[in-house]
């Protein structure tokens, strides 16, 4: 298919990109393009201008910042997957990235692009929720930090303002005895998550759950944290029965999507099942 015409700008710096955004209020940022270009080809999106930020040096890269790991917004999935640092400290990221799209998509797609696009069926939103990440945005009025919990607002809608640019995602390094897992039920055609569940569990020395965070994507209009599940588990011995009981809460209070492949009712069921599976695996890993 064939996109509509647009003006192409290539930004050399974040400041230049911000300026272009102000000058072209209808413009879209282009990083990997793997959410935007398919929409443009089908003419579901026809922005008058694209601002290519993929060559802005300060936006890409992975760095160790002491108690945090910071990943630039235009860092490609493939680079994250290959990072030894990420594999060691945040193994849920490569685990989730491995089931995003396909090899070619992972070569082009970027972490920030996916998060800013906020596709309801994207994988990473669940993961950043479970990891308790912080997202840094820069706008004309300067920089601000948005906790992952407040980032996903609605279908394809985030807390970012139209004139803001997502610059980096910062992850706290997990404490000892932490296990994490992303479990996904993929749509067989698109590969997107029908339901994806991310769980990060930290066990205390007594073997009980000291901290837990659960994120769910695919199920509803946007990715959500499941605090009810978390609360039911904290302080508990993470037995199969306890996980099962907590997971039963996973679908409570949520709105579910429905399509030809999976009804809302089935998605609610899968949400419970995949939260259970992610928790089970995370606990296994936390036990080492």
């Amino acid at each position: 298919m064939y996109p509509s015409t647009f003006t192409y700008y290539r930004a050399g710096s974040v400041q230049e990109a911000l300026k272009l955004l102000v000058e072209n209020p209808d413009a879209k940022l282009l990083a990997g393009g793997h959410s935007l270009i398919p929409a443009m080809k089908l003419r579901l999106a026809s922005p008058s201008a694209l601002i290519d930020i993929s060559r802005v040096p300060e936006l890409a890269g992975i760095r160790d910042a002491g108690d945090r790991i910071v990943i630039g917004a235009t860092t490609r999935y493939d680079d994250i997957q290959r990072s030894e640092l990420v594999r060691q400290v945040l193994p849920i990221l490569p685990e989730a990235i491995d089931v995003i799209g396909d090899l070619q998509v992972r070569n082009m797609g970027t972490i920030g692009g996916s998060l800013a696009h906020a596709d309801p069926a994207a994988d990473l939103p669940a993961v950043v929720l479970a990891l308790g990440a912080e997202l840094k945005a820069v706008g004309p009025d300067g920089e601000r930090t948005i906790p992952a919990d407040q980032f996903f607002v609605d279908l394809f809608t985030t807390a970012l303002q139209p004139n803001e640019i997502l610059t980096e995602i910062s992850f706290p390094k997990p404490p000892a005895r932490t296990g994490m897992s992303y479990q996904k039920f993929a749509n067989p055609a698109s590969g997107y998550a029908v339901v994806g569940a991310a769980a990060v569990v930290t066990l205390g020395e007594d073997g009980k759950v000291a901290a837990v965070r659960v994120g769910v994507t695919g199920a509803g209009p946007y990715a959500v944290r499941r605090q009810n599940v978390e609360q039911a588990l904290v302080g508990q011995e993470p037995t199969a029965a306890a996980i099962e009981a907590a997971s039963q809460l996973a679908s409570e209070g949520m709105t579910f999507n429905s399509d030809i492949f999976a009804s809302d009712e089935y998605r609610a069921h899968l949400t419970r099942v995949f939260v259970k599976r992610a928790l089970t695996r995370a606990v296994e890993r936390a036990r080492g």
């Binding site: 290539r10 393009g33 270009i37 694209l50 993929s54 070619q104 082009m108």
Partner: peptide, 21 residues
């Protein structure tokens, strides 16, 4: 994936990339 080419050595879908990129 019928359009896959190597871009700087990595496989990409050339239908999901503008030539300017």
């Amino acid at each position: 994936g019928a359009c896959t080419v190597l871009l700087n050595g990595k496989a990409v879908k050339s239908c999901t990339l503008f030539a300017v990129q």
